[in-house]
Design a protein around this nucleic acid. Structure first.
Lengths: 365, 365
DNA sequence: GGATCGAGTGTAAGCGCATACAACGAGCGA
DNA sequence: TCGCTCGTTGTATGCGCTTACACTCGATCC
């Protein structure tokens, strides 16, 4: 690493001009085979790796797509304790509530994988940023300066900032509400999914007595799901306002708290509809602890389709979101916009899948 | 996005020179307050976002750290079927083996999160790359040209390529074997962890009859774990070669297959030690299906500490790797190398934690 | 055999920014 | 009052690459 070599070094070493070196790397067909090999040999010998900065500057494109997340995991609060463990190994008894579980498989992991996959397929690299700290807007700006386009997760960026950076690069919104026709937008069928699930419980399982465990007030996805729930009831002539609605916070812990309330007040419904899987898992925790049978006494359902729901017992009935596809679709929309900036706004709704499992259906046959 | 504005536009609009614009953004304290505000107003009005390429070129650093993974998920094989679903919602009965489960929470997700966190803390952005396709080396090269330093997951890059790019930027190896003193290296105490777990089984549970479900031949981590297993037996005067060793492939499916063999041949041991959690979960699947009690008849243990292991039933005894910390440590090592290129090679071993759960200990008290 | 053509290569002009250095003016001490 | 310093701003250069354009030279054509 003494001093990274440049096109000039390679050109000198191979006895050609820098333009030829550049051509060998960009459009090898334009160079005579013998020259090409000479240059490649020099590249290898000098350990030459082209600077993406210089290339991007000259070519007016970076070849990078960006993905920006809000900081839902609050990981910045981790301290450094683990780096200073006393020894190499520690043996502990891990009780169900030890808090030793690892960070859950977040929504984001899959969106990220999908994004990376699609970006790669199209020949782009992917840059990720997580909004946290005092100045998330700075991070957005920073990323915006590094990429050819950026996908942004719902509500994670103030409108003003979004508008600012969108003057430089195309922006794609993932999930959340559509914001007018200003940005391309990909999301999933939240309402239709919750509607279908509720309708199944109404029609097939004959449930009429519900409680709804809602997400935080400000979640647009949560709101859409709730709408779907209400719509299903209305379609069957039931009064949607008759079902108690408990406000949660999308966390397992909040699911536990709210369910505990329900148990303590003796107001357990026949079916507990949760706005996401985490809360539903929290509900299962509490119901099991109180000896309430699921689904015999209470049916529990979630939304998202996280892995933990499929290994819980009973396995959790849920609505699976195509999160990987969400990421892929976002990148596609972005590239399509890059190709044709003047096309009309893209707005994509990805289909969801209701997964009926033992928390609503009973033991598998 | 008509045309991204530049320093020149901002300078003209604010009636200052480009140097002043640059200063306002880089070292605001060097500029008189009134000028600063004038410039910032222009920045905002013009939707100016500085080009990281130009900045990086001029400043000779990118402000980006890289993370490179091998493609263990084989996700590129996904096709586009899901994009063409017939409707918005589909309702399906999801049996335990429907294959509808989502991609597992990979090792990588957490390494990635840790990396991003630490990079952010140090004021860097993170770029990720997954090796796949015909020319993974190209991807490595591409990333290397974009970043100030790169962390690489075990065995994912050929030595020659590694050596090539390491002439341009510092490289940190994550997990896997150390390769001489050429690179900085962070890993976990695989052997010590497996040793401690096995020793617990020997001393506390009184197990003497083992079978070992090993990973693929070429996994250095797998080899270290196996060494730990053998070491524990030797330390207690047992013959390590007496325990049958089944070769797996680190996948749940392989775990199932191998365990099925064990069941069919009636050679079930008292304890089945698996080289990772995925295989252990596969073993649990099969044992449950055959009515074999865990841990009453057979004790099962894993390695890694993935989330699915903590929601399985019985919950899986395992050795938890600090994967998030692994990512963080890699970034730290990189930055430390960046600060002082001449310091001696860094080699870090992170501690692991043996988590005793119901698959070895029986029901919680 | 000279004009024409095309493949292959070189020349040179930026791309948008950071920054060393120069320039300038106001405040200061002597 | 003169020269000096310090704070503030402008000028000019270069970071490493891509690419339009010019150029060379042997092959082709009439």
């Amino acid at each position: 690493m003494a001093k990274a070599s440049t096109v000039y070094d390679v050109a000198a070493h191979a006895g050609v001009s820098i333009a030829t070196v550049s051509r060998v790397l960009r459009r090898p067909a334009d160079v005579r085979a013998s020259t090409r090999e000479k240059v490649l040999a020099s590249v290898w010998e000098l350990g030459y790796v082209p600077s993406a900065n210089a290339r991007g500057l000259a070519a007016r494109r970076t070849g990078v797509l960006g993905l920006y997340f809000p900081n839902l995991d609050a990981m910045e609060e981790l301290d450094d304790a683990e780096f200073h463990g006393s020894g190499l190994v520690e043996v502990v008894r891990d009780m169900p509530d030890s808090g030793l579980v690892r960070p859950p498989n977040l929504y984001f992991d899959e969106v990220l994988r999908g994004s990376e996959l699609e970006a790669w397929r199209q020949g782009f690299a992917l840059m990720v940023g997580v909004g946290r700290g005092a100045f998330p807007a700075d991070m957005v700006n920073d990323i915006a300066g590094r990429v050819d386009g950026m996908a942004v997760l719902a509500q994670s960026v103030p409108d003003a900032v979004l508008e600012h950076v969108s003057r430089r690069i195309p922006i794609v919104l993932i999930a959340g509400p559509r914001r007018g026709d200003d940005y391309d937008h990909v999301s999933v069928s939240n309402a239709a999914g919750m509607d279908a699930l509720t309708t199944h419980l109404l029609d097939v399982k004959g449930v009429t007595n519900f409680a709804y465990l809602a997400g935080p007030e400000d979640s647009p996805d949560g709101a859409e799901r709730f709408d779907g729930f209400r719509r299903a009831l209305e379609n069957r002539g039931l009064d949607p306002d008759a079902s108690p609605v408990l406000r949660g916070g999308f966390s397992r812990q909040r699911g536990r708290e709210v369910t505990t309330e329900l148990v303590n007040t003796g107001m357990l419904p026949r079916a507990l509809i949760c706005a996401n899987d985490q809360m539903a898992l929290g509900a299962l925790d509490v119901l099991r602890a109180h000896g309430v049978g699921v689904p015999s006494d209470v049916i529990v359902t979630g939304f998202d389709g996280i892995e933990a729901g499929s290994t819980a017992s009973p396995r959790l009935t849920t609505v699976r979101q195509p999160m990987v596809d969400l990421g892929r679709a976002a990148m596609r929309a972005m590239l399509s916009r890059l190709e044709d900036p003047k096309q009309p706004p893209i707005s994509l709704r990805l289909p969801v899948k209701v997964l009926l499992r033992e928390s609503s259906e009973g033991p598998p046959s």
